[in-house]
């Protein structure tokens, strides 16, 4: 029997504070036209510019130990962790629950970083530099993991948690299967946690995350189809749970031209049509798709102003900002041309 679900009185009001706050935080993000100007600057100039923005505190505190691209990279990582922790601290109830579910991706990122570091024999200090304690696992726990000698010990530390099953797939030779399993676990856990709440906010989070999975799978398809990899291998690498999962997995293994023609008519097609049709680089297509995702999150949040969507929009915009800064700085350090860096920057 269908049940009439009346909205709980005052529920959207729980989101009023956090959405007001993230909308104010959004105004402090670096404007898009600034990336163009940053492309013309050298690294010390970029650092000086960042000192005038929200990154000032991190750059000032790290400037004595690091310099150049490294300084910018570590400062942006520290800032992103601080910002996301703040979002968790200033929210309560349902918004906090949903933000934490979304931010668990940084736990996955940290576990992957530690595993990769241990796999390639990186030192504890080196691993620590790239950790972003923005999720549930705090810095103390991550530090403990980074101090362990072998990968098996790191995996053992997760015994009894959800992560263990995914980590246990490690065969001693390759990390890619473990990394893939961790990605799948993240989306599986989110669906399990949010799907159970049956709330409007949880539904909106899932709607956005499904779109995100589609975009991720699309990038995988672009890369692998271009490289001519077998359909079954590609399908293994696709993350389940996306809205277009069935259709996208059918596209695995197609020739590149056939694949691109098949994408016409999808909502994201207008964002990538010109680049994809002329056979542009995958990184350019990825940047366009990322920009599409950011626009999608904000467009959706206009329909649901008092929901989790403005917060997600802010998180995605902030992620994009940090990755843009890192791309520019690392590109400049490697001596890449401004055009090549510009292709990768998400505008």
């Amino acid at each position: 029997m269908p049940v009439l679900r009346l909205p709980k009185f005052g529920k959207p009001v729980k989101y009023a504070y956090i959405t007001g706050r993230v909308r104010a935080m959004k105004t402090k993000l670096i404007p898009h036209e600034m990336y163009q100007r940053m492309l013309g600057m050298d690294i010390p100039e970029i650092t000086r510019y960042l000192e005038e923005t929200q990154y000032k505190e991190e750059i000032d505190s790290m400037a004595k130990d690091h310099s150049g691209a490294e300084l910018v990279e570590y400062a942006t990582f520290a800032n992103i962790a601080k910002t996301y922790r703040k979002l968790l601290e200033v929210s309560i109830d349902e918004p906090q629950f949903l933000i934490l579910e979304y931010l668990r991706r940084w736990d996955i990122w940290n576990i992957k970083t530690i595993l990769r570091g241990k796999f390639h024999g990186a030192s504890e200090e080196e691993i620590m530099k790239y950790l972003v304690p923005a999720g549930e696992l705090d810095m103390e726990f991550l530090e403990g993991l980074a101090k362990k000698e072998r990968i098996e010990e790191v995996i053992q530390a997760f015994d009894g948690t959800d992560y263990y099953e995914a980590l246990a797939q490690y065969d001693g030779k390759m990390l890619s299967s473990v990394e893939n399993a961790l990605d799948k676990l993240y989306y599986f856990r989110m669906e399990r946690a949010v799907g159970g709440t049956l709330s409007v906010g949880g539904g909106l989070l899932l709607k956005y995350v499904r779109k995100e999975i589609d975009v991720k799978n699309l990038v995988t398809l672009f890369r692998m189809n271009k490289a001519g990899i077998e359909a079954s291998v590609i399908q293994e690498n696709l993350i389940p749970g996306g809205k277009l999962h069935e259709e996208l997995s059918r596209m695995a293994g197609q020739s590149y031209n056939e694949f691109v023609r098949g994408l016409e008519g999808y909502p994201f097609w207008s964002a990538i049509s010109d680049v994809a049709a002329e056979g542009g680089s995958v990184s350019r297509i990825e940047a366009r798709l990322r920009a599409y995702l950011v626009r999608y999150a904000w467009a959706l949040s206009n329909y649901h102003p008092l929901s989790i969507l403005p917060v997600l929009g802010y998180i995605v915009s902030k992620d994009t900002e940090v990755s843009n800064i890192r791309k520019i700085v690392r590109g400049k350090e490697a001596g890449l041309s401004a055009e090549l860096i510009e292709e990768q920057v998400v505008a």
Binding site: A16, Y17, G20, A24, K28
Partner: peptide
């Protein structure tokens, strides 16, 4: 006012000029 008040406090926490 409950929603407006909460949102205004959120914005003012970031931007006191508001």
């Amino acid at each position: 006012e409950q929603g407006i008040g909460a949102a205004v406090v959120g914005v003012v926490a970031e931007e006191p000029g508001f």
